[in-house]
Amino acid sequence: MKMKAVCTAAGMLFACHAFAQSNVTISGLIDGGVSYVSNEGGGRTLKFDDGIAVPNLLIFSGKEDLGGATRAVFELTNQFELGTGTFMPGQSLFSRTAYVGLDDDRLGRLTLGNQYDFMVDSLFFGFNDAALAAAGVYDFRNGPFAKLALPGNPTGAFDWDRMAGERITNSVKYQSASFNGFSAGAMYGFGGVAGSIGASNASSFGLNYVNGAFGANAAYTLVKTATTSAQDSVRNWGVGSHYRLGTVTLTGLFTTVRNNLNGAGIWQVEAGTAWQINPFLSLSGAYSYMKGNAVVDDNHAHQLTAMLQYFLSKRTSVYVATVYQRANEGANAQINDVMVASSSASQFIGRVGVLTHF
């Protein structure tokens, strides 16, 4: 009994010492609301939908000061469905992100685990995607492109340019410090295939520039499916920029995808704006044009998005959002996160929701 008490006391002392040297944060995002879809498989739908303007996330993050401007860092992120409490994606606890690493003011940041690639880090978190302010997941890229047939994709083209938070598992990631506004990053995901170093691996790169109100970014990601061949892979790349002019932010984005398994490819261009009308009210909108190659029947689509947001506090807001997609004749429109395509060339969503962060 005495030894148990000594061990318990020693454990408490160690825990207190570790906590004194560390900074651990619990944070998150929650979004819920009601959406009207004009045509989902031929019928109208009124439904509860969540994780739209922002994903539902529970985040455990922390850092420990190691001295000399160096810190140990970690992050564990759980994504969940608000309506059911179910874990997602992958139905596991920390499948959104899970990593540990070192961060140095001069040398940069090195992390290991399940992490966002640079299509997300450079282009989306670089503030170049209008979806950040306008309708969230509904504004990410999808459309009449089911024949893109991305491996493991729920619609074949859901979030085809990876901007909604796609990750590379079993990865090592390096992000440089900023030098005169420039920074860069690279990551490698190990395939874990016995007998082959290159099979099922992944790589991603990012280049960033920030100068006051202006920023520009570029990114490239290649994910192999089962072999070492570049012909057995999916490739994305994109460029984007933003400019803040007082209370107005302008964004521009160009992204592409090529599924080398079947030769299907799509490109898109998007222009967006976000206006902070006053401390309590913001208005944002976006226009995008998507165009596929012959493998996806040369289909194309126009998409318009708008969102009006009223802030009840610094953490909580209510909003109204609309999305409209128009595809070419003979194609079926499909707004992102609507898992059943329209039976016609058009699809509309109207949504009322509330979101908070903590």
Rank of each mutant, 00 (worst) to 15 (best):
V6H: 08
A10S: 10
A18V: 09
A20S: 15
S22T: 12
L29C: 03
L29V: 00
I30T: 09
G33R: 10
V34K: 05
V34I: 12
S35V: 06
S38C: 05
S38Q: 04
G43F: 03
K47Y: 07
P55Q: 02
L58G: 06
Q79C: 04
F80K: 09
E81S: 12
T84W: 14
T84K: 09
G85Y: 11
T86F: 01
T86Y: 06
Q91V: 02
F94M: 01
L107E: 05
S122K: 08
L123W: 04
F124R: 03
A130M: 05
A134P: 11
G143P: 13
G143L: 08
P144D: 01
F145G: 03
N153E: 14
F158C: 06
W160G: 06
M163N: 15
I168N: 13
N170G: 07
N170L: 03
V172S: 09
A186K: 10
G189A: 06
A194H: 13
A194Y: 05
S200P: 09
N208D: 15
A218C: 03
Y220F: 15
T227S: 13
S229N: 13
W237K: 11
G238D: 03
T249L: 11
L250D: 11
L253F: 11
F254G: 03
R258V: 11
L261H: 06
N262I: 01
A264I: 01
V269S: 13
G272Y: 01
A274G: 11
W275Q: 08
Q276W: 08
I277F: 14
S282D: 15
Y287L: 05
V295D: 04
V295S: 00
V296D: 05
D297V: 00
H302L: 02
Q303A: 07
Q309R: 15
L312Q: 04
V338L: 08
V338Q: 14
S342F: 03
V352E: 03
